[in-house]
Amino acid sequence: MRFFKLSCKKATEMVEKEKINGLSFIDKLRLKLHLSVCKACRGYEKQSTLIDDFFLKTSASDIDNIKIEENPKLKETIINRLDNES
């Protein structure tokens, strides 16, 4: 049973590992067990998902919603470079 025990630090680390790499069957069990008895880590898991959702939402925020900054110098540089390419 000691083998099954996880510290909170390890458990929250495994929450992230699971999202990215997935976990082995045994580790999945260990994490589930830990989360079932640890309120603080359950809270972490929810917070982690919330942060993920925030990033997903903002990175999907479309191109049409950003502030357009003009960069005439860049325009000129690119046009000159393209002329040299041909």
Binding site: I63, N71, L74
Partner: peptide, 8 residues
């Protein structure tokens, strides 16, 4: 498009 691309 360069301004838009640059801003992005």
């Amino acid at each position: 498009y360069s301004d838009k691309l640059y801003s992005w």
